[in-house]
Amino acid sequence: MLISDLDCNTLKTHLSGQGLRFRTGPFSVSLRATIPAIARHIAKLYPHSETLDNDAFIDFHITTHQVAGLRRWLKPQVVFSFDGYKPFKPLPLAQAAAAFEWGLNWCIASSSHQYLIIHSAVVEKDGQAVILPGSPGSGKSTLCAALIHRGWRLFSDEMALLSAADGMIHSVPRPVSLKNQSIEIIKAFTQEPVWGERIEGTTKGDIEHMCAPDSSVRQPPTAIHAKYLVFPHYQSGCLTEITPLSKGRASMNLIENAFNFNILGHQGFEMVSDLVDSLECYDFTYPDLKQALDGIEQITSAKP
């Protein structure tokens, strides 16, 4: 059964009771939340997620609750908790959905060391996967959002999971998080997607989450050998430039973008070396979305 098969009341009953149990990528989550915005967020943005039985093993027991006490009347806040541990300070209640998304990212990054976790989007078409690591401002999410409406499949928007066991990238197709101007750019680019609610004034600016199209999440495979590593750099008014990147430099950049390289240590180093060895690596500077899409096509079809 998928989350989209649950009616609104059943969903709310689970969330405010024993927890809504569902799968996202390789992870199983139990979420408890009485905040209505979270229920709407899950219903809209996780429709493809499979729900789980009561006896299924759960990786992450999560709650996002409103902070109790006198303050709730003056300045309502939400706090994210992972088995009682609260990694972040409370956020304004209006940012509840963002707190859930960031919190789940935190759970995965802080405890899933069967993967080297790289801050990166991953998309795939015709068996060819592209890793798009993203420092802030690189335009990684914007590019990813556009690609998955042009025939590419979403593997991940926020984190590439490189498996220590098989050297493959594993898929965790959660909603794409877009910020500030990117939201309007993608809304102008495609009418197709379902959007979450606009969340204003977060530490990262205004955010909207976009649900990946059906075509982009439903079919297998869930793991793949990547073929390209492309570091996107958005620069307004520049010329498109595709520059091959040395494997040494590419390794260093990947490691810099990995959340848990320090945990995996020497094994992580070997994983990065093996991965980079098998990849074509590029630096990619682009001035707008159209050029960006053309550039990715150029990299992955003919030789630039």
Partner: peptide, 10 residues
């Protein structure tokens, strides 16, 4: 548990 062992080692 395996991940927790990795954390301890690091």
């Amino acid at each position: 548990f395996l991940n927790a062992l990795r954390i301890a080692k690091a």
